[in-house]
Design a protein around this nucleic acid. Structure first.
Length: 790
DNA sequence: GAGATTCAC
């Protein structure tokens, strides 16, 4: 039994767990009544519901037993006995044809004999729906009780909310139970589970990570299944790093890591050579074509290829992958023009072509169009119509379009990159990985055999494309993650067992920031403030600003601003109506900065939108995104609950007759969180420019700003690297506040170079020291006037 | 005087 902790070759035998008792070593964790499943006590009223599970020994279940139980008359998973419905049997017949079903035996054996199991299940294998059910027969979580008296749980994590919801719904149907009872899901803003009944829970990976913050042992879970692990989201990576050592402390906990395609070896190796189970997929063959020579202009080549397919290939829809909104809209226009020309010149060969763009910021109504049928042929014996969807990589994983037969893959996507030196995340058009290329190709073979046209050479595919995309953890600012890890009890962040360790500089940058924000003390330990900050689903700067706002009497306002900053841009600016949109925005503009403008918008939204109709009308008239505003409202509610939990008062300062003060306190609170993101003006008049403090990057306020002047100090929410260095969502701040709320960061000694900012800070701190002896307020007031002149 | 790749708490 020595190897039980590391998931390697645990010999067949009693599973690790509670100490054995006389009657049945495997049921010791059950209450006496529950132990009777073996058949000894048949008099209890609930026994009939358990008939199907008679003879089941937890984690020593055979495929024969499972297959028999699936055919039983009564559902053994419901709390009161219930006969299976006809629908259940119909679905069961279909389930049995899934590739995973052929491997129940293999799965159960490997699962039961090992603590950790790695599974490769290709698309269409049925792994996401079936494996958790197989685990349920083995774990019997509904008959065990966790530390809080509720049933034990099987978790299956997903990177996306929609997947968690839709799979849970499907599995509830398959098990003939109601969604939210025995089978449920948990995603942000929505918990469709029932504590006394749920034993199988689908959830987003981020949600399980949040739960781990409050229960480090994850003691309610008997098995955790990490699905889509190959996507390597930040949350999945952190979860893997937490679960690996947890296995030693929880010998009864089992882990299944499910992944598509390659890289299984990497997962196996990481989890101490865990065994591997391969399940074939069920897709149609896709023939792949490469270009003989590299294409100098992929956009032009893509358009040409789509039109070529339209002329020369059999009926079937096309999916083209491009990198972004602008490129997609551009390609749509050009392909429409090309198709019109073809239809005019050779109507006997080319039928009608419907061109549909797809990207995430498109309103849902427009996104639905990807599911429309291809246009009909113009005459009964004319050439068939065709649909072409031009999409970002949203169609690679998040959205599946049935009926695609041809995929055109230029080999590029926009990817996030992080530069820790200047603490900036930016987007870069980069070559995709082999794994992405495979994924794109697979989209052609979902309903029948297809073709994939890669607009690069085979040689480039083999030699130039990396195997898999870099995991998110290597491409992100980790401030938030580092805070979370500390809260999760990870002491040494550098020695944490990452599957791929981030650059030390990225971690150092995060630690530094958290130390300046006073979330970490100088020894790198979490402060009481840091403990609270970690509870907010926010970036550390936002969390700090929100927490500070209570003392400044403006938490209601900062709460609204935080929510607005946490959702996509609320301002719409359709190409054809830019001017009208800008005029509409001007009505909300606050001259001192965009944060205050956002506050105006939120207030206006709340006063003008009291029902569905008023909301959509008002937003439409004001060029605002209703979707984003509703989301902001949702976020605001969630944050206010966290505020209450920590007794952070929700308060406002008086506005009437006190406007200047009202806004000043809001600006001060924002400064508490964002003092590290401030730029200083150099030069004057039209030649004025801004330089970020300490990082010394030359930046310009983003043209979308509502600021109407050029203050000496400008705080920014975001640094964006596009055509130039822009700072977006900016706010005028006073240098005295900087020194007041971040004395160590702005102490004159903390500046390496002698610059103007250092001199200003020297001046202020001298005055403050002088003023301290002569009282408080008046000295500071004089200081402000002085600073404004300078 | 610009321009969002996608998810997640």
């Amino acid at each position: 039994m020595v190897s039980a902790t590391n998931g390697t070759a645990a010999p067949p035998g009693p599973p690790p767990g509670p100490p054995p008792t006389k009657e049945n070593p495997y049921l010791a964790h059950l209450s006496p009544a529950e132990r009777a499943i073996g058949g000894a006590d048949a008099s209890s009223s609930s026994s009939s519901s358990s008939d199907a599970l008679t003879g089941f020994l937890p984690r020593r279940v055979t495929s024969k037993q499972v297959l028999a139980a699936l055919e039983a008359p009564m559902n053994p998973f419901t709390s009161t006995p219930k006969p299976y419905s006809q629908k259940y049997r119909d679905i069961l017949a279909k389930r049995k044809t899934l590739p995973v079903f052929a491997q129940v035996d293999d799965f159960l054996q490997k699962f039961q004999e090992n603590q950790i199991l790695v599974m490769i299940g290709e698309t269409g294998s049925g792994k996401t729906t079936q494996i958790p059910q197989f685990v349920a027969y083995s774990d019997l979580p509904h008959m065990k009780r966790g530390p809080d008296g509720a049933p034990m749980l099987i978790a299956c994590t997903q990177p996306r909310r929609v997947a968690a919801m839709s799979v849970a719904k499907r599995v509830a149907e398959e098990m003939d139970v109601s969604l939210g009872q025995e089978v449920g899901y948990t995603i942000r803003f929505e918990d469709a589970t029932s504590k006394p009944h749920t034993f199988l829970k689908y959830m987003t990976d981020g949600m399980l990570l949040r739960e781990a913050m409050h229960d480090k042992m994850l003691s309610r879970y008997s098995t955790i299944i990490l699905d889509e692990a190959h996507e390597r989201t930040l949350a999945t990576d952190i979860l893997m790093g937490l679960l690996k050592p947890l296995c030693a402390k929880r010998p009864d906990l089992k882990i299944v890591v499910m992944s598509a395609t390659l890289e299984a070896e990497k997962f196996q190796k990481y989890f101490n050579s865990a065994p591997l189970l391969k399940v074939p997929g069920r897709t149609f063959p896709v023939e792949t074509f490469y270009t003989p020579e590299p294409e100098p202009d992929y956009l032009e080549a893509a358009i040409r290829t789509v039109l070529m397919i339209h002329q020369a290939e059999d009926e079937g829809d096309i999916l083209l992958f491009l990198t972004g909104e602008e490129e997609i809209e551009d390609a749509c226009r050009k392909i429409r023009a090309g198709a019109d020309e073809l239809a005019a010149t050779s109507p006997e060969i080319c039928g009608p072509l419907k061109v549909v763009p797809l990207y995430s910021s498109l309103p849902p109504q427009q996104q639905q169009k990807i599911f429309d049928a291809a246009p009909a042929r113009l005459s009964p014996d004319g050439p068939p119509g065709r649909k072409v969807v031009i999409s970002t990589n949203i169609a690679e994983t998040s959205l599946t379009i049935d009926g695609i037969v041809y995929v055109v893959d230029p080999g590029f996507s926009k990817q996030k990159v992080y530069n820790p030196r200047i603490r900036v995340e930016s987007l870069l058009v980069s070559p995709i990985s082999k794994a992405s290329a495979q994924q794109r190709m697979g989209r052609a073979g979902r309903t029948r055999p297809g073709k994939c046209f890669r607009l690069y050479t085979e040689k480039d595919f083999v030699n130039e494309l990396i195997e898999s995309s870099y995991p998110e953890i290597l491409r992100s600012n980790l401030a938030n993650t580092v805070l979370e890890l500390k809260k999760l009890g990870v002491d040494n962040l550098v020695r944490f067992d990452y599957m791929d360790a981030p650059a030390p500089e990225t971690i150092m940058r995060a630690l530094e920031l958290l130390n300046y924000l006073a979330a970490f003390d100088d020894n790198g330990n979490l402060t009481p403030l840091g403990e609270i900050m970690a509870e907010f689903p926010l970036d550390p700067c936002l969390a700090k600003m929100l927490i500070c706002s209570s003392d400044l009497g403006c938490s209601n306002e900062i709460l609204s601003i935080t929510a607005m900053l946490s959702v996509p841009n609320v301002f719409l600016r359709p190409n054809a109506q830019r001017q009208q949109a800008d005029t509409a925005k001007a009505a909300f503009a606050h001259p001192d900065g965009d944060h205050l403008t956002l506050l105006n918008v939120y207030h206006a939204y709340k006063t003008n939108c009291y029902d569905k109709d008023s909301a959509s009308n008002w937003c439409w008239q004001n060029y605002l995104s209703l979707r984003a505003l509703q989301q902001a409202d949702n976020v605001r509610q969630q944050l206010s609950r966290t505020m209450e939990k920590f007794d952070l008062d929700l308060v406002s300062n008086q506005f009437e007759g006190n406007e200047r003060r009202y806004y000043e306190n809001i600006s001060r609170a924002i400064t508490c969180g964002f003092f590290m993101q401030v730029a200083h003006k150099s030069g004057a008049g039209k030649s004025a420019s801004y330089t970020t403090i300490k990082d010394n990057q030359i930046v310009a306020p983003h043209p979308s700003t509502t600021l109407d002047h050029s203050p000496e100090f400008l705080l920014y929410n975001e640094f964006v690297l596009t055509t130039r260095n822009f700072i977006r969502t900016v706010l005028e701040v006073r240098p005295e506040w900087l020194l007041e709320y971040a004395p160590s960061y702005y102490a004159p000694e903390a500046f390496k170079d002698d610059g103007e900012v250092k001199r200003i800070m020297q001046g202020i701190s001298r005055k403050l020291k002088g003023g301290a002896s002569s009282g408080n307020g008046s000295g500071r007031e004089r200081e402000k006037k002085k600073a404004r002149k300078g």
